[in-house]
C-alpha cells in the first residue's frame, strides 16, 4: 500500500529543535490529525512534508521516492501532488475567486499563457465544478477578499483540489474561523478524504474536533511524537500532558 514515510526527521531553527527525530508512516486514504500545543512543531512538520522548508537531517519518502532529495521540476511535481491549505488561507486577495481556484493548476500544468490568465476550457469547467461542490459557484467572479473567512478557506480547498493531489496538508485550517464555519470546512475536508480517497494530514488545535473527524491522531510535544493511535485510545491524562492542562 502506498504510504508516506518519515524517518528520523530533524529540523533545527538556530539552537531550537522544532522537529526532533520524528519517524512515522501514513498510509493512503488515512485522515490524520496532528495535535499539540503551539510551538510543538505541527506547522514545521507540514512545511517539511511539502518541502517549503528543508530538514536538518532525516528523510521523507513517498512510495519509496525520497522526497527530501527532490529538486527543480521533480520537487514542483511533488508539491503539486501534495496540496496545502493554510490558517490564513493565503489566497491572492485582489483577484477573483475563479482565478484563485485556477491558480492551483500552475504546478501540474504550467504554460506561459497562464501568466496572462489564459486557462483552458477543461480547467475552467473543473474549477467551477469544485466551486459548485463547495456552494461557491455564484461567487466565481467576485473578488476573493470580499468573501467571509469560511468561504475563503473553501476557495483555498477548491484551489488545492485543482492540483488533483494525493495528499492534502491542512495547516490549522479552522483556527481563524467561527464554530459554524469551522464545521463546514471540516465537513468538506472529511468529504474529500472519504469520497476522493485523498490522504489528509490536518493540524488542529481543538482536540474535540480532531477526535470527531480524524481516524488517527499524532500528538506532538517539543518536536517529538508522544502519541500515535486512534482517537479513542487518547487518554485524558495524555491529552492534558499534550496541552499543558489548558485545552478542552
Amino acid at each position: 500500500m502506498a504510504h508516506l514515510e518519515i524517518n528520523s526527521l530533524v529540523k533545527k531553527f538556530a539552537k531550537t529543535k522544532a522537529i526532533n527525530g520524528i519517524s512515522l508512516k501514513i498510509f493512503d486514504g488515512e485522515m490524520v490529525g496532528i495535535i499539540g500545543k503551539s510551538g510543538a512543531g505541527k506547522s514545521t512538520l507540514m512545511r517539511l512534508i511539502n518541502r517549503l522548508i528543508e530538514p536538518t537531517s532525516g528523510s521523507i519518502t513517498y512510495n519509496d521516492i525520497e522526497i527530501t532529495a527532490l529538486k527543480g521540476k521533480n520537487l514542483r511535481e511533488w508539491r503539486s501532488e501534495c496540496a496545502m491549505i493554510f490558517q490564513q488561507f493565503n489566497l491572492i486577495d485582489r483577484l477573483d475567486v475563479l482565478t484563485n481556484v485556477l491558480s492551483g493548476t500552475l504546478g501540474i500544468n504550467f504554460k506561459i499563457l497562464k501568466l496572462f490568465k489564459f486557462y483552458n476550457k477543461r480547467e475552467k469547467i473543473e474549477a467551477l465544478t469544485y466551486l459548485n461542490n463547495f456552494e461557491l459557484s455564484d461567487k466565481a467572479l467576485q473578488r476573493v477578499d470580499t468573501l467571509s473567512g469560511g468561504q475563503q478557506q473553501r476557495v483555498a480547498i477548491a484551489r488545492a483540489m485543482m492540483q488533483n493531489p494525493k495528499i492534502l496538508l491542512a495547516d490549522e485550517p479552522i483556527s481563524s474561523l467561527d464554530p459554524k464555519n469551522s464545521k463546514v470546512v471540516m465537513d468538506d475536508i472529511k468529504r474529500i478524504n472519504n469520497q476522493n480517497g485523498i490522504t489528509v494530514i490536518c493540524n488542529l488545535h481543538s482536540l474535540n474536533i480532531a477526535k470527531q473527524y480524524c481516524d488517527r491522531l499524532i500528538g506532538l510535544s517539543e518536536g517529538k511524537i508522544v502519541f500515535d493511535g486512534n482517537p479513542s485510545s487518547l487518554t485524558n491524562e495524555l491529552a492534558e500532558q499534550l496541552y499543558d492542562l489548558e485545552n478542552e
Binding site: 508539491r79 496545502m84 500552475l106 497562464k114
Partner: peptide, 12 residues
C-alpha cells in the same frame, strides 16, 4: 508561499 506549495514556479 501558497503558489510555491502547490508546485508553482518563480514566474507564477
Amino acid at each position: 508561499e501558497a503558489i510555491r506549495s502547490h508546485g508553482g514556479n518563480w514566474l507564477s
